[in-house]
Design a protein around this nucleic acid. Sequence first.
DNA 1: ATATCAGCTTAG
DNA 2: CATCGCTAAGCTGATAT
Length: 861
Amino acid sequence: MGSRLEKNSDAVRKRIQGHAFDDEEGEEYEGSTFGGFSDYMRRKKLKLQNLDADLRAQTSQNPQIFRGIVAHVNGYTQPSLADLHKLIVSHGGGFLQYLDGKTAVTHVIASQLTPKKKVEFAKYRIVKPAWIVDSVKAGKLLPWNDYRVVDEGVKQKVLGFENGSVVSQASTQRRGYRDQTETSWYTSQMRHENGDTEEPPEAPPPFAPEPGKPREMQSPVIPASPAVEADDFPGVSSIGEADLLAAMEDVPDADASFDEDDDGELMRPPPRLDPVPARSQSKPVLPPVQSADVPPITQRRPLTPEEYNAMLWQDAGGQPSAQKKPLTAEEHNAILLQNPHMAKSSTANPDFINQYYRESRLHHLSTWKADLKAQLQARAQEKSSTQRTRSKAPGARRYVLHIDFDSFFAAVSLRQNPHLVDKPVVIAHGSGPGSEIASCNYPARKFGVKNGMWMKTALELCSELNVLPYDFKAYEEASRHFYDSILAVEGVVQSISIDEALIDVSEQCIKAGGSDGKGISEGSIYREQEKAKQIASSIRDAVRDKTGCEVSVGIGNNILLAKVALRKAKPAGQHLIKPEEVLAFLGELEVTDLPGVAWSIGKKLEEIGVKYVKDIRELNKERLISALGPKTGQKLWDYSRGIDKQEVGEQVIRKSVSAEINWGIRFINQQQAEDFVQCLCDELSKRLLENLVKGKQMTMKIMRKAADAGMDPPKNLGHGKCDTFNKSVVLGVATTDKAVIGKEAISILRSYGFSPGELRGLGVQMQKLEPLKPMAASTSTVESSQRRLQFKKPAAVPATTPLKTTTETEEFKSSHKKTRPKLADEPDPIEEIANPKKERTVRLMEGPIPLPLETSVKHRP
DNA sequence: ATATCAGCTTAG
DNA sequence: CATCGCTAAGCTGATAT
Ligand SMILES: Nc1ccn([C@H]2C[C@H](O)[C@@H](COP(=O)(O)OP(=O)(O)OP(=O)(O)O)O2)c(=O)n1
């Protein structure tokens, strides 16, 4: 497991140390919070690497078993610090003389640690010197787990240094709060994270640890899946009075006055230390039935909304008080959801999933992308099977166009609001501080507003921002015209997203150049470039005509160059990078301008002195690889030189299907959480069927509120700072069965034993996909009319098969669920699935022979 | 060496 | 008035075989 938003941990740590941090929890995924991680750290690391460089160079014949490891030695050791240092560096490792509490060090080496040191080093892997010695002897890196000094602490789990037993984790945590006395939260938290707490005697692990072996290396004990029956899942119900009262049973006489404000969160007792007895949801063992968790419902008069609000207010604004009982996470949620508006936008609403997916821009983006990809790939398949295989001259010049709408959502919405075109405009759901800006126009960008930014930040940059709502249908329509225009051009097309595509027009261009596309004839190259520009220009005109929106086009000799050229082309322009300009153009870009490089890789590069693309060229490949890994290192080495071998339109088969929701997750009991997981599994099952695949492996994804995060994150109903837990299980046989998937998913969820009120995000994913098997005959042919994103058939490619007519004027289906695209060259029946009920279109995974399929879309009540 | 798993990062 | 923080893929590192 790891900590999502781990960058925020840094922020929190700094705040603890008294540094000023003005950003509320650093919740925004990208942005200013991440800039100044540590000059200090960077310098130190660089210094270390320089000092050790010589030794490393002299001993490069040694097996580099410690590559990637940065060690620090604490206290007296045998062998000595100097010897360990030499051993480590001469075998490829890094060494840090001083520890500053940051993350560069991967391992601390110590023979033993004082309790104080254990606290200080809680977040490191602490290993005995023998690990180094034995590993060198063995000539390979031995598992550090076998040389732990601190035996399996919670904190080490929190940092994700293991993949061990979830049961032990839950147990240890229970130990944490059961052990809680009246001491301050901070003290207990340190102890909690110290990792030297013992196993709770009252909750022994359900297995006997192997002697001498760290427990985390053993198999996790997960309750057998059959423990959950399909019948166990009644539909999600909205919170009833009974639920609320049950969840609130302990509340009324408690003043519930802990400070859970975000600013005061450090003073807040973490919920997991909460002494309220009714917490059997936290038990890792089944069955966590609601009735066992909560006291019987009393006759108490229901609280008025005012009273609830008052309680909530106190909850958020009161002072910490050790004598007062804090609200449990479930109680907090129960109060929160008493507000009907909140309830409607959260898991308390039975229609939440549908409603959420209807409104989520990111869901739409992902769905659109998958649809487009499938359609274009099917189209390519069809083309290649009906046409002579295009003989691509290897080594010939390529001309790639990267075409993209300018501020897509904003541009489309602005057509209805022409009076705002010169004013700063953003697309968002609302004007609240946590509302995310999907797209902003160029006037808004002048203020520094960016896509993905939160409203709060944007308003600070530009107070007179105009907020327009989404219009997903209009985006689909504009996109259809966009793809119609592009597909009318002769070339290989690849979809990047709803508003963005690549087209390889090498063939046309080289033909226009009048050479074989290899020789360096200036005249030919000039004509090729002119041809590319002319194609770009005509595409821009066509899209503008049809949509009233501007697209820009980047042109280059490969995908990378087309992409970076696009940035220069915007807005409303086009730009071609000539071969002789490539190195200069790329060199002046910052590394984060390269595709695939954002804050994380950017930071790693900054640490080794790289800010601009040209700086990458100063490093040898080895250095890049050691800093970034083999693939990434190689890729950046290539990119910095303008090399990108990837072809437009490479066929990629889908490897996973998933459904997740990480917003609006607020449960007040375990049953609700499990019902919701089942709903997600229903959704997943439906998506599997639509894609004509079944899956053999299921992964459950869980986000749980981080211990140091407040109950109410800055973003309304957002997930806030969370820890993430993903666990997969391989099924005996590939399936699409929602009951099977649900059973496994719920089993995993239960095995973690999380308090349902602290869950903030849930998702299910299927992998190891297999195509649903074709079987007997069936009728196909209805589905293409249901496609939402549909463009014209390729005019240049006469279909050899009786395909349904698909026109670009197709009506959108506004039905509850999107339907699937398909392009088939032959109807082919497929295996039937459980509970057929409703017609649905589907797409085949590999050899695309998509067909309509009877599937169930029944939803839980 | 290779496979598997979990976690993280990236893009739109 | 809040708010709709998805999803697929690629990569890394740890560990198992
Ligand atoms: N964090 C983001 C990024 C993008 N989008 C949506 C809205 C955008 O309009 C659309 C296309 O994304 P682009 O990256 O192409 O951005 P724009 O088209 O808005 O602007 P640009 O002119 O930079 O392409 O995807 C989003 O919802 N959230």
